[in-house]
Design a protein around this nucleic acid. Structure first.
Lengths: 253, 253
DNA sequence: AGCCGGCGATCATAATATGAAACCTGTATT
DNA sequence: AATACAGGTTTCATATTATGATCGCCGGCT
């Protein structure tokens, strides 16, 4: 819920390196070899090995017994899910998500920024399966999501989060930084952002930011669904409900 | 999937300390102050502070803007869920869980050990809601679960995992180490373990271990439900299906 | 106003992490 | 079968990096 980016601290190099090793594991590369890890983290093989051992001894890293490859460990799964379920914003936002999903019939999500992506903290589906939250924990690039655009529009120095170059996910994805920046004023004016076929062909969404007690941007509420069910007119109507929810969710008075 | 416990490594003190700081956060204490963290981790306040900053800069730690209290961060949520969903055992076990749940009508789970507890890696409910996996990511004490008992019975030096003293969850919980150890031979003989009202009053379960390619114990498959629906006779019958599933799940032909 | 509890910064000290090199082990290659 | 290779693991001298006692700071409480 950082309103300010925390300064990279001195005197904790080893801890930082260990964390960065963990972050090298992605859904696309769930298993990595020592050499790869060392190169990607910019570490000496010995150093990487030592840190990985430490992480392994705590269960944050595990190894494929057969291949010897490193992968993320069970303790990390436990801690991650725990972090998710004990998140106060998530708990507070739940009823609002339910209401948004019920009233719109579409899927409502709560998302927060993680590095250069938006993480789905919670999700309530609309007309389909109730209770299913299949996408909780997944991440999407900031520049292609409505929630991400809302975030960089309203957060101080939000643009710092954008990766370079902006990856293209569909033919509609905005990959020019200038073009993206030119949308921000409009988003600030309306109070919400939109994505139409930019993330995935046939998917549209709208989103607005959620603020904390000090007015700092914590994340975003969003509603999303099939593009053909969400023309501009309907997006505009749903946005009103979204803005109301975000306002009511705000703690400060 | 450690068949051997990894030796606590030298030369990675800072990384270890950082990880241990993270582990101080529990569902019961999701927010902690610097002082508490330092004391519980056995660290100097300065050291704890420095490490926390490093973790915060990477999004593993976050702070409650209002109170200043430390809590687990968003990057950890993302990484934890990612670890969960990219777990190969989980993917492989899924169809077996579904079959067990369908055939028994009860809830089937896949669990793995994390420190002194069993973590629910995946879950398929039986007759009730399909697809709901409400308990994935939660942990239970090893000594009170059928999966935990199966684990310590079949794993080399499994007893090392037991905490001391054994906490009591219900009046039936086995809290004597000797009594627990005396059950292990029986479990090894039958091939599966049971828990009856030991974890929660009215809940019973059976479990057997899952092994990896090298014969090492990876975790446990279990079936659980209301005690009144699961008398000894039925538990025995279900155990056969459980053992078969565990055998078929085994990779090494 | 003044106090108090908690967080954050500083800095001399030495403990700790570092990485080059050598070693080992199992797998492909000739 | 012998050899080369690719990856993992261990070692150890070096100095970089982490450490923690102390002090300063800020914001709430009385």
């Amino acid at each position: 819920m950082a309103v300010t980016t925390v300064t990279p601290p001195p005197g904790a190099q080893a801890a930082l390196r260990a964390v960065r090793l963990l972050k090298l594991f992605t859904p696309a590369r769930p298993e990595l070899l020592l050499g790869e890890l060392a190169v990607r983290a910019g570490l000496n093989k010995s150093t990487a090995h030592r840190l990985l051992r430490a992480l392994q001894s705590e269960g944050f890293i595990d190894r494929n017994q057969a291949t010897g490859a490193y992968c993320l460990g069970a303790a990390l799964m436990a801690l991650g899910v725990q972090a998710l379920s004990s998140n106060t914003l998530r708990v507070r936002a739940r009823p609002f998500l339910q209401r948004l999903a019920r009233e719109s019939g579409e899927t409502a999500t709560l998302e927060i920024p993680v590095d250069d992506s938006m993480l789905i903290l919670d999700e309530v589906a609309g007309d389909y399966v109730i209770g299913a939250a299949a996408n909780v924990g997944t991440r999407w690039p900031i520049h292609a999501t409505s929630s991400g655009k809302a975030l960089i529009a309203f957060e101080d120095d939000g643009l710092r989060r954008l990766q370079d170059p902006l990856p293209s996910l569909t033919v509609k994805t905005v990959v020019s930084r200038e073009q993206l920046e030119s949308q921000l004023a409009g988003i600030r004016g309306k109070g919400y952002a939109e994505t139409v076929d930019e993330l995935e062909d046939g998917f549209s969404g709208i989103a607005t930011v959620v603020r904390g007690g000090m007015g700092e941007v914590l994340g975003a509420l969003s509603i999303g669904g099939p593009t053909q069910r969400l023309p501009a007119s309907r997006r505009g109507r749903l946005a009103a409900a979204l803005l109301e929810a975000a306002r009511d969710l705000h703690p400060g008075q």
